[in-house]
């Protein structure tokens, strides 16, 4: 089902220029590109090599070190389920289970409709409202099995 992402090279270029082609800003550049597609398309690596003057192995190293960056296509919505201590105690596992069976994907995978990518993350810093899940940049707290599934349904409708 892998479809090739058509890349907006103009925007990629403007991101690189925004950071003055500075190789020290590699991580920020990767993050900005990731914001465009929810992942970093490997096709941009040779361009970064050329424009930033870094070796491709360094880009791979940085891209695989940080969890926020993926070189594989991810869904439109990235579900980051907190599995930190507080959320774990409050039942993060149940949320995870519900999402597994609803979306039919394991942790780290992307749903077939390319809408959702399921990630388990460590503490995201709002333990008081746990169990917590981030959907892209939005945080949803106080979840249980049914409210998590309801949330998924809402995002599905938003997308269609």
């Amino acid at each position: 089902m892998e479809t090739k992402t058509s890349i907006d090279w103009k925007r990629v270029d403007s991101i690189i220029e925004k950071y003055n082609r500075d190789k020290e800003s590699l991580l920020m550049i990767l993050q900005d590109i990731s914001d465009m597609y929810n992942y970093v398309p490997p096709e941009v690596i040779p361009v970064l090599v050329k424009k930033l003057g870094v070796r491709e192995s360094l880009i791979y190293s940085v891209a695989t070190f940080y969890k926020t960056i993926s070189l594989k296509p991810r869904g439109k919505y990235i579900l980051s389920v907190c599995t930190g201590t507080a959320c774990h105690v409050r039942g993060a596992e149940k949320i995870m289970d519900a999402l597994h069976s609803e979306l039919n994907i394991a942790e780290g995978e992307t749903s077939e409709d390319r809408l959702f990518t399921l990630l388990g993350v460590r503490c995201i810093g709002c333990c008081a409202s746990g169990p917590v899940m981030n959907v892209n940049h939005d945080t949803h707290g106080g979840l249980d099995r049914s409210s998590a599934l309801k949330l998924i349904e809402e995002y599905r409708q938003q997308a269609s």
Binding site: P42, I45, V54, R55, E56, S57, L58, I59, Y60, S61, T64, F65, L71
Partner: peptide, 21 residues
């Protein structure tokens, strides 16, 4: 000064790796 390899991933999984391993 070839730059063919670098660390990938982190922690226990980390290894010297080429682009896309």
């Amino acid at each position: 000064v070839a730059g063919s390899i670098d660390y990938n991933n982190r922690g226990f999984k980390s290894r010297p790796a080429t682009l896309h391993e």
